[in-house]
Design a protein around this nucleic acid. Structure first.
Lengths: 125, 125
DNA sequence: AATCGTTATGTAGATATTTACATATAGAAA
DNA sequence: TTTCTATATGTAAATATCTACATAACGATT
């Protein structure tokens, strides 16, 4: 969101980000990983999700592994082998998590909208 | 904020971050720079602010320069020379910006509190 | 048993970011 | 005019991240 034209703050946007952290302050998963998990859910495999996001399988696999290790439980159930190579499906926990995250984003968007409106009203002349 | 003890999500916290971006998607200033600017305001010099934050003067100077370049106007008025070496004071714009940012944080904290409460209620068993 | 596509993982190289160190300059006050 | 200390800035080294490429294993289907 930007201020009115001609303002000092024109073309400046207020952005936000939400993510999960553990007690050590390490990031567990943020938007990128949530998106990946969501695509795994929609497309049925990590490979397909990686392709959809335009990132390498290697990278996507690393993201997923990192999130699961830090959480301490699996978000996906992986199957390998078979004519189609294998597939991945979300665990119950994984489904719950992305569902909650989606709802969270909706609420956040609403909050940010209200807050940024005030911010730019205050900051702009 | 964490879920109830014994929960799958115990020790997992929902965090957020806000910052200003320009149209190119470059970050202009976030919490670290705001904190620096706030300390300059309180302490009267970039050096003192850097010391307070436990970062090098060189680093603090780079942070400030970067923010001012990207904004296109100065947040501080710098004076060098004199028996005490010099000092820095915030411009009117600088003062306005950190004041607005502080108020913004208060509102964000409130919003995040409400949202995380719902999030963990939803996600925890 | 041969095939096929996905999961699984190591590693070297490239990039980006951060940190450390060094040095110059201004200018009021003594 | 000497001193003192904050502002000002370049640069090399150290870290951290990301990317690219390689290779192995698995197992249902044919």
């Amino acid at each position: 969101m930007a201020g009115p034209k001609g303002s000092k703050y024109y073309d400046v946007f207020l952005k936000f980000k939400v993510w999960l952290e553990n007690t050590e302050g390490e990031s567990i998963l943020g938007n990128g990983k949530f998106e990946l998990i969501d695509y795994i859910d929609q497309l049925g495999s990590l490979k397909a999700a990686a392709d959809k996001l335009g990132i390498s399988y290697r990278k996507a696999w690393g993201m997923l592994k990192d999130a699961e290790e830090k959480l301490g439980f699996c978000l996906t159930e992986k199957h390998r082998g078979g004519q189609h190579g294998g597939n991945s499906v979300l665990t119950t926990e994984g489904k719950e998590l992305i569902e909650a995250y989606k709802e969270l984003l909706v609420e956040f968007d609403e909050a940010i909208y209200q807050i940024t409106k005030k911010f730019f009203n205050k900051v702009n002349k």
